[in-house]
Computed example of a mutant assay.
Amino acid sequence: MTTRQAGTRPPTSKDVAALAGVSQSTVSFVINGKNTVSEATRRRVKEAMRKLNYQPNAGARTLKTNRTNIIALFVEMSETIDANETTPYIDAIVRSARARDYDVILTTTHDGVAALKRMAGKSICDGFILMDVSREDPRIPIAAELSQPVTLVGRATNARGLDCVDADARKAALLAVDELADTGHHHVTMIGTPLGTNPNEYNFVDEFYTAAHQRADERGLGFSIVQRLGEGWTGIEKTADQLLLHADNRLGIIVRQPQPTEWLLRTLRRHNVIPGQDVSVVSYCSDYAAASFEWQVTNVSTTPEQLSERAANLLFDRLEGNRNRDARCELIAPAGITRRDTTIDWNARE
């Protein structure tokens, strides 16, 4: 990689043009994302910029194009949020943005409405992605009035014409229950949300539990939901007796998210119950998380990369000219289930 010596002038677009064998106007078209340049020429200009360590003047580009090439990503982060589950979504959006020469401002404040108004008022972002969207999310009326495009990750009761992407939690629940039914289990226990929280606040959470219950009934399995008695490991540990009530009846436990999965495994070990030998465990979490536990957990993937990339694509589609198309609401279905150490095949034991 070419580096600049101290005291020498910084490279200019004229230098890039000379190295790439194109005109300065072509370099400008590439920098500003114009679609009039062939892909081969675009790659040649990008390679010349890389070799020269050329960085376009952001202020000049903003004045010329009325764009900052910055988007804002709003993510709920707190001591009760599972960062292991959230980080892959953030990483995927950042990668998608960088592939289009956009930077990402990450906003994690709890004052969602005020933060959105504040960021929009600064006029430093071309668009916004709002994660963790609830059914009655108070940010949506504000987002719908902005001149910049907004994409929602999660489904609201009324999206007010905004694009949205969400996980197909219903499909995930069907896969989890079918895995247990197909391997000869008799009872399904689901770990619910913590006591005092509203399981109906988010569409995908409600759909996950409802679809699992319906599928268990269809497959002739016993079914129960055990609500966590608080946050953290102790919230699951306190429910151990309820969780294991059907342990002698080919029990399969379904859990959602990496942290509760880890807390469940710790609880089982503490009670001398071995996943994959005494009971089965199926988690709705990323593949990376599922393979990282003491026992590699059978899982339905939350597909964070695919969901986040699709959210970013919808936003950039708006930014690149399709401002007036109809709003889209897309569900990203899991590809399947990965059987790991924590599934007992009771049929093979007969």
Rank of each mutant, 00 (worst) to 15 (best):
G154Y: 02
A172M: 11
A143W: 00
G112I: 13
L146K: 05
C125I: 12
A144I: 06
A156Y: 08
L174K: 07
A176V: 04
L116A: 03
A114I: 02
I142A: 04
L146S: 09
H110W: 02
P138D: 02
A143F: 07
K117L: 10
L175D: 15
D163C: 09
D178G: 03
A114F: 01
A172W: 01
L116T: 09
F128I: 12
A173G: 04
R155C: 02
R160N: 07
R139Q: 06
V165P: 01
I142S: 03
V113L: 02
G121M: 03
A120F: 10
P141C: 14
A114Q: 15
S134K: 14
D126K: 05
L175G: 08
I124Q: 08
A173M: 06
R170I: 01
K122Y: 10
T109N: 08
E136W: 05
I140C: 07
A169L: 03
A173C: 10
V153Q: 04
G154I: 10
D168K: 12
P141T: 08
A159M: 07
V150R: 15
I142E: 14
V165M: 02
G161A: 10
A167G: 13
D168A: 08
I129H: 11
Q148T: 11
T157G: 15
I124W: 11
V153D: 03
K171P: 00
D168P: 07
P149W: 13
L175V: 12
A172Y: 00
G121E: 03
Q148K: 13
K122E: 06
D111V: 09
D126A: 06
N158K: 10
A159H: 01
L162V: 12
V177I: 11
D111S: 09
D126N: 04
L180N: 04
V177G: 01
V133I: 13
G154N: 09
N158S: 15
A115H: 05
D132N: 15
L180R: 08
R170G: 15
V165N: 01
D178H: 06
P138G: 04
P141I: 15
T151C: 13
V177F: 00
D137H: 07
I142P: 09
L180D: 08
M131K: 01
A159G: 10
E145I: 00
S123L: 12
A172Q: 02
H110P: 01
M131T: 11
A167E: 11
A144Q: 12
Q148L: 09
D163H: 13
Q148W: 05
G161Q: 06
C164D: 12
